[in-house]
């Protein structure tokens, strides 16, 4: 465990709590892509199947449970509790364009052809593109509430910090997880455009146009 990874996990947790808090306080999920949140719930479900079979550390187990809870509660609030405020007409990204290639690739390019390993690989590939429906929705509506931009900032920051974690682990432990690193680079690249917007336009109050 190193500082980059802890900061990355905290940033990830903060992003999820920011989003949950925003939906809960405003009693609305306007501007939030339910599809992205559903994909994140799928990412955690397929990645954390080893939750009860492979104990790594208390931290690891607790964080996995928290991440699973946050993602499922968020999906519940979008599609059930506050479904009236969900603007599905703007959340139109075709998920099959993500799920089909990601599934295919996880069968082709993995570390070992076992169910758990293929599901883990699927979750890594899926996570790198799971934010696309949300970014697509923002580009379609042309705006995002400030809290949503903070959510996206910390979500993008988390994987960027993981990249630093992998560089650190490569130099200190000679650790190298090729699938996670390549996917992490792709995932962070998708946020670059948003990071630029966040920094340049983040100062205007209320909304980022």
């Amino acid at each position: 465990m190193n500082l980059f990874r802890i900061l990355g996990d905290v940033s990830h947790l903060l992003a999820m709590i920011l989003l949950l808090g925003k939906i809960w306080r405003s009693k609305s999920c306007r501007g939030i892509s339910g599809k992205s949140q559903a994909l994140f719930a799928l990412v955690f479900t397929t990645r954390y199947l080893d939750l009860f079979t492979n104990f790594i550390s208390l931290y690891n187990t607790v964080m996995k449970v928290i991440f699973l809870l946050c993602s499922y509660v968020t999906v519940y609030m979008i599609y059930w509790k506050f479904w009236k405020s969900f603007d599905s007409e703007n959340d139109t990204f075709r998920l099959e364009f993500l799920l089909v290639p990601v599934t295919g690739l996880s069968f082709l390019e993995n570390y070992s052809f076992t169910p758990l390993e293929i599901l883990w690989t699927f979750s890594i590939y899926l996570e790198s593109v799971a934010i696309l429906p949300q970014l697509f929705m923002i580009s379609k509506t042309g705006e995002a509430e400030t809290i949503t931009t903070h959510y996206l900032f910390f979500l993008g920051l988390y994987r960027a910090l993981y990249l630093a974690n992998w560089i650190w682990r490569y130099h200190t432990e000679n650790f190298y997880d090729q699938i996670a690193v390549v996917s992490g680079v792709v995932q962070t690249i998708f946020y670059c455009d948003f990071f630029y917007l966040y920094v340049t336009k983040g100062r205007c109050q209320g909304r980022v146009e």
Binding site: S57, Y111, N165, D177, A180
Partner: peptide, 10 residues
């Protein structure tokens, strides 16, 4: 394989 068998990261 290059990755870690127990995937100790979140």
């Amino acid at each position: 394989f290059p990755g870690d068998p127990d995937h100790d990261e979140l």
